[in-house]
Amino acid sequence: MGSPHTVGIVGLGVISGQYLETLRTVADVRITAVADLDQARARAVADTIDGCRALTTDELVAADDVETVLNLTIPAAHAEVALAAIAHGTAVFGEKPLAATFAEARAMTDAAAAASVPLGGAPDTVLGTGVQTARAAIDGGAVGRPVSAAATWVSGGHESWHPNPDFYYRAGGGPLLDMGPYYLTSLVHLLGPVVAVSGAASRSRDHRVIGDGPRAGESVPVEVDTHLAGILHHDSGALSTVTMSFDGGTTAAAPIEVHGTGGTLLVPDPNRFDGDVRRRTSDGWETLPPSAGYVGAGRGIGLVDFVRGERRAGADLAMHVLEIMTLLQTSAESGMRETLTTTVERPTPVPLTEPRDWRG
């Protein structure tokens, strides 16, 4: 791939600002084009980046000066944009989940493989010092043999703060597909791939009311389950329990706990890149110093890692996590344990890497 590596961004919603903040600081990445359904917004963003053009999506995925498409559209559009880029031989790195459905994701990975086009996807928060330090501790025997883990995320729903929360309550949304990728990707990094799942789900109401912004007071239909509890059976023999909910206020539970034969590890919020990793043994609690991961990273570090050939946030991992989520939903409907068809090798660990080194 070229240097600087050229990137075109499709979708300039709320999350794009965080990606831009990171990518603008990386020496060997250059943003050459942006596209959005709102052409005025695309032009406004392009005007803030030297050498960047505002294009339509069709123009951007076919552009000669775009080596990788950063796909930040809503989940329902992930597959359409990715397949269009792949058809032009352009690499794709997308926001989570990889696609709105497992079938769409499979079409993406098959097309990418057939065209020998690199494909990857978020979350990249797992590459920060929080999850990577926890992984290094577990791999180093800090809790003995890992036996189980618990992952918990609870909120009242994104309609309280997001001005356009509709897609969170449509196919491809819900707490599991929205927040689950952070937690499940972390669990795969920490404990390895999953072989089977069991799930249960519920929906507390059929509509949500937007609480902020120009649409405040507007009712949004709910088409997906808004609370899910699940059990993950890891290939290693460890069991993880997962709770993802839009039907609570908050929780005092640790984001992720890992229990082993020699102690317990508290893992910080996997929706962040940093945070304290705490270890409990018979002698009490201790905070572990950062020992692995990209220091000071933000959203976009996964793309940087991807275009440099590391690809720790590759499509195989994103596909495995999407199947975990899909089968948790299937199990919730069937009442049966479901077996995965995919597996993945744990990505290589990230050594402790200071900002001056990953920014280039």
Rank of each mutant, 00 (worst) to 15 (best):
T133D: 11
G248L: 10
T341F: 01
T264Q: 09
G199R: 06
A238P: 11
S148K: 03
M1P: 15
G211V: 02
L83A: 09
I31Y: 08
G180M: 12
P290N: 06
G284F: 11
G296E: 13
L191K: 04
T25P: 01
S204D: 15
T90K: 06
A201K: 02
T101G: 11
A332H: 08
A113S: 13
F167M: 06
A200Y: 03
A105P: 06
S148A: 13
T48Q: 14
M244F: 07
T243A: 04
P181L: 07
H227F: 03
G263C: 02
G360P: 02
P268Q: 10
T326H: 10
A229N: 13
S219P: 07
D225F: 14
I231G: 03
I256L: 04
G298Y: 04
C52E: 05
R215C: 14
A114D: 09
N164V: 11
A33N: 07
T129R: 04
A253G: 05
L176R: 05
V224F: 14
I86C: 01
A292D: 13
H233K: 06
P349K: 05
R208H: 04
T264K: 05
S148W: 02
V307W: 09
V14A: 09
V131F: 08
S148E: 10
P4Q: 12
E333T: 15
A196K: 03
G335F: 02
T226Q: 09
A252E: 14
F93Y: 15
L119C: 05
V131E: 09
G199C: 11
V209S: 00
G192Q: 07
E159S: 11
E67D: 14
A136F: 02
T241C: 10
T32V: 06
A253K: 07
G157S: 10
G213Q: 12
A35W: 00
L327N: 08
G128W: 01
P355F: 13
D247I: 04
P193Q: 03
I138V: 12
S3G: 03
T125Q: 12
D65Q: 14
T32Y: 03
G156K: 03
M244Q: 14
L352Q: 01
L98G: 02
G180K: 11
T353F: 09
G120H: 10
D225R: 15
V45Y: 01
